[in-house]
């Protein structure tokens, strides 16, 4: 298998942790709340899913448990940020540290253990194509994740719920004047962000690399946070960015497969370096951020 077809076959799976977490954060940020705790929520979801699958509860049960656990953690954040009106940055960091701590605590007895992954489901015909064939042979979660992406895009763009979420983020006072409960909608959006981060962590720990190691999320939550900025809060661009980062993070394995002798620490740093470069390039365009950005992002909403 050539390095290129290896990357093409694997990039969707590698993208999944970024994609799921970034889509959840996108919804939360669209409602005007900045949750910096994604890394911790993913870490908690990862350990919960791993434990459930390891106790042979099955992947479906593992994902549900992970989603619920991370959504619960996100709700604690939402309570701090929305009900108590604490500093959103500090609250997000606190939740992140708490999630990572809980992950290490629960995962201690599972260090270096493995669980079975998921089988690939291929689309007949397409998956036999040369070079691109691998793209059409993915596990069930990737297919579901792509469907969920479509659903989130359509909801934000066409449904009344999506309109209300965006209105709450753009101008909470106007949304309130129209009779919408700003705080309740933001609670929901933040909890949804937690749910998706939980799924993202579950995918990372029980499907993508089904082996438990403390700190296995390794900054992917932070990259997901950056992806939302790269994508200038647009769903389609989140998908593009996530797949790009999936491909970048595969480069280490691809380089080995292709026999390229590159420093492994440099390759491991590549996603972080790319994040810094892209963040600089996108953020420098202030007009783009202003047009597409969320007007009330990070600001508390009082009565």
């Amino acid at each position: 298998m050539s390095a290129l077809s290896f990357i093409i076959a694997g990039m969707l799976a590698a993208a999944m942790p970024f994609l799921l977490a970034a889509l959840g954060e996108l919804v939360a940020e669209r409602s005007g709340v900045l949750n910096l705790g994604i890394e911790g929520m993913m870490a908690l979801g990862a350990v919960v899913a791993f434990i459930v699958v390891r106790q042979s509860g099955g992947h479906a049960m593992g994902f549900v448990a992970a989603g619920l656990a991370s959504a619960a953690l996100a709700t604690v954040f939402a309570w701090l940020a929305l009900a108590v009106r604490a500093n959103q940055v500090a609250a997000g960091l606190a939740i992140g540290i708490l999630g990572q701590g809980l992950s290490a605590l629960f995962g201690k007895r599972y260090e270096s253990l493995t669980v079975p992954g998921l089988p690939k489901l291929s689309i007949p015909g397409l998956s036999e194509l040369p070079l691109l064939g691998g793209l059409f042979s993915q596990d069930a979660v990737v297919w579901l994740g792509l469907l969920a992406t479509l659903a989130i895009w359509a909801t934000l763009r066409f449904s009344k719920l999506g309109l209300v979420i965006r209105a709450v983020g753009e101008n909470p006072h106007a949304a309130r004047a129209l009779g919408y409960n700003v705080i309740a909608i933001r609670y929901g959006a933040v909890a949804f962000g937690g749910l998706m981060a939980g799924f993202a962590g579950a995918y990372a720990a029980t499907v993508y690399t089904p082996l438990w190691a403390e700190g296995m999320i390794a900054g992917r939550g932070w990259i997901a946070l950056a992806l939302v900025v790269f994508a200038t809060w647009m769903t389609g661009r989140v998908v593009f960015g996530a797949v790009l980062f999936g491909a970048v993070s595969l480069s280490q394995l691809a380089a080995q497969a292709g026999g390229v002798a590159l420093n492994s620490q440099l390759l491991a740093s590549l996603p972080y370096i790319v994040t810094i470069l892209v963040l600089g390039a996108i953020s420098a365009n202030k007009r783009l951020l202003k047009i597409n950005g969320v007007a009330s992002l990070g600001e508390p909403f009082g009565r």
């Binding site: 910096l36 940055v89 390794a218 900054g219 932070w222 946070l225 950056a226 900025v229 420093n263 620490q265 440099l266 491991a268 740093s269 972080y272 370096i273 994040t275 810094i276 963040l279 600089g280 390039a281 953020s283 420098a284 202030k286 951020l289």
Partner: peptide, 26 residues
């Protein structure tokens, strides 16, 4: 990055930490 490129220092400082860890390992 923040002053000239308007990039969030929250994300860039964190990414620099992850890179520092790799540099140390190297």
């Amino acid at each position: 990055w923040r002053v000239r490129l308007n990039a969030s220092e929250i994300l860039v400082t964190l990414m620099m930490s992850l890179i520092a860890g790799q540099l140390l390992a190297y």
